[in-house]
Nucleic acid binder design. Structure first.
Lengths: 343, 343
DNA sequence: CTGAAAGCGCTTACAG
DNA sequence: CTGAAAGCGCTTACAG
């Protein structure tokens, strides 16, 4: 009934066995050049035999460096988030850091708790991957005076860097792809909640039209809800226009999914009658009918870059405070030239 | 250019300000009943004002309890894994534990490194969520003499518990659902790599047939590869039979996705001509045409149960070494009674 | 109720 | 090359 935790062997135990001081053991285990090769090897083999595992806790206390970082996410179940975390963890691990993971669920109390716990554990830095960094959150984070990197979120400040997707460029790429296919009436189904990603993608769309000397037609911009339903409603609105678009740019894949569904219900062929394009490259995007042309965010890379940026912040190196990552257009089968009679 | 890490205020600093000993500060901060309310409150407010954050590192060293656990996953990008981790983290956090996350990528060297790092950090327990626990892995884990809980993996031993999905029961539920709809010729598309989940689901299928006095027909069992392609090929094989099945049970959703695709190509209506059913309830399952009937594993719950089980192991409580979790049949639109002329 | 002291397991100047 | 000593920031018997 008592705890199964055994007291691990310590540096002292090794010292006793090897008949040296614990300073010598410590040095031997670190391959200090102060130690004779023979002694070092002897001690190392004793350590291995006795299953010695150095206490990072004790080391952390004396060196004041824990070699840990904290990652706060809204939800690790979000595939975007888990890919980013994958990249963070990989880079961290390769550089001797361990990562604490905490979900905030976007609940303010949890956010506070999580950050306090990170602070007590003396993490050397924090990466925040959440759709929006809560208002309550910011003062908390800056009060800690710990290096922070934000992913897809900007909030410049001392010790705060950001890694961001280049939404404007990605969106312009999408629009250009459609223009090059010959489309002239290109619709945009956005969101209605004023998310920054939506705003930036709309900007990229407008800029691309302008560069191609195409008119911006306000009625071709409608607002969904970022979900399947929004895409369906958006398509409905666009089809009721006097003149339908020949291509629809959905600001995310879920919206595009709804658009495809509604067009399918209406027996409108994609890409025969209308081209559809998304943004995100969800797993599902390659399995839609037809497979969806979309934009991929290099999620893992973003995680790695975030961690790289954090390590620079930790070491006090000067570095870019904002890193813009290019998005990649993935052309599948939902886009094609417009039908000639629609031109 | 120097490190931005500030030395945090310690118990000593507070003691100096409050004009008491550090023992008193320590007690006041823990709400020890040995302290007068007045003193306690005074000290607490000083601590708050000076932004004091207790060092979990130092506390861990003296109490020999770090209140941390480690989670090893093959890849956090796997949606099954991230949901499980979500549950683990939630339960852990609610019980004052922080979680270290590490990807093994199923690479033996990484697995070793990860476990060593967990050991050095003195985690109180480990949860392993990986498709298979590597051979190299087991001795390592047991050598550590740290409580371990395996998710969807069994390897009984001292200090090792498991949380498992009840595949046999889940699969029998699927088969019964089809039998109750009136199906008599029910096919099974499995895998070809001998995964335990595949084996168990095949067993559930056979047992259900037997209980319903239906014959087991070997040619109705074919082998895919767990992916879309395997499902397509499996369907092809089943359609070439002298007598086609009226329902197809795919051992996972990706296989079912392929099955749906191939049936669609062949202009065979689902569920009109043939019913299709999957297993996993991937996100994509509700977006297929028609939406897929499938089986959901309560992933988050499994994570929570794993953590609960781990805490029991840590506290030395006696508890079930194996927890079987029921799977849930999700009936959508890909299953229906067989056509009368096919009966 | 409060404080002085020991100790958790390391690292690292300091002295030899 | 090696060891004794101090100290990281806490907790907790022990004494008062």
């Amino acid at each position: 009934m008592n705890s199964p935790v055994h007291k691990p062997t310590s540096i002292k135990d090794i010292a006793r066995i090897a008949n040296v001081s614990s300073s010598t053991v410590s040095r031997a285990l670190h391959n200090s050049h102060l130690i004779s090769r023979r002694t070092a090897e002897r001690i190392q083999s004793i350590a291995k035999e006795s299953g010695y595992s150095a206490s990072a806790i004790a080391r952390g206390l004396v060196t004041q460096r824990t070699k840990t970082i904290g990652v706060v996410v809204t939800s690790i179940s979000d595939p975007f988030v888990s890919d980013v975390v994958n990249g963070i963890e990989e880079y961290a691990n390769d550089h001797g850091y361990s990562v604490f993971l905490a979900n905030s669920n976007a609940e303010p109390e949890r956010e506070t708790k999580v950050v306090q716990s990170f602070s007590e554990r003396r993490v050397e830095g924090i990466v925040v991957t959440s759709s929006r960094v809560g208002a309550l959150y910011r003062p908390l984070l800056s009060e800690m005076r710990i290096p922070i990197v934000l992913v897809n979120n900007q909030h410049p400040g001392e010790f705060v860097n950001s890694v961001l997707i280049d939404n404007v460029k990605g969106s312009a790429d999408v629009t250009n792809h459609l223009i090059q296919l010959g489309h002239r009436r290109i619709a945009y189904i956005g969101d209605r909640f004023g998310y920054q990603s939506d705003m930036e993608r709309l900007t990229g769309y407008r800029e691309a039209l302008e560069r191609a000397d195409l008119p911006f037609t306000p009625e071709l911009v409608v607002h969904g809800d970022g979900k399947c339903e929004g895409g369906m409603i958006g398509v409905e609105m666009l089809l009721s226009l006097p003149k339908s678009p020949t291509a629809i740019f959905c600001y995310n894949d879920m919206t595009a999914l709804g658009a495809l569904r509604q067009l399918n219900l209406k027996k409108i062929s994609v890409p025969g009658d209308i081209s559809v394009i998304g943004f995100d490259d969800l797993f599902i995007a390659s399995f839609t009918q037809p497979p969806l042309t979309t934009v991929r965010q290099p999620r893992r890379l973003m995680g790695r870059l975030a961690m790289e940026s954090l390590l620079k912040l930790i070491s006090g190196e000067d570095s870019a405070t904002t890193i813009k990552v290019p998005a990649e257009l993935i052309v599948r089968e939902s886009t094609a030239p417009p039908r000639e009679d629609l031109q």
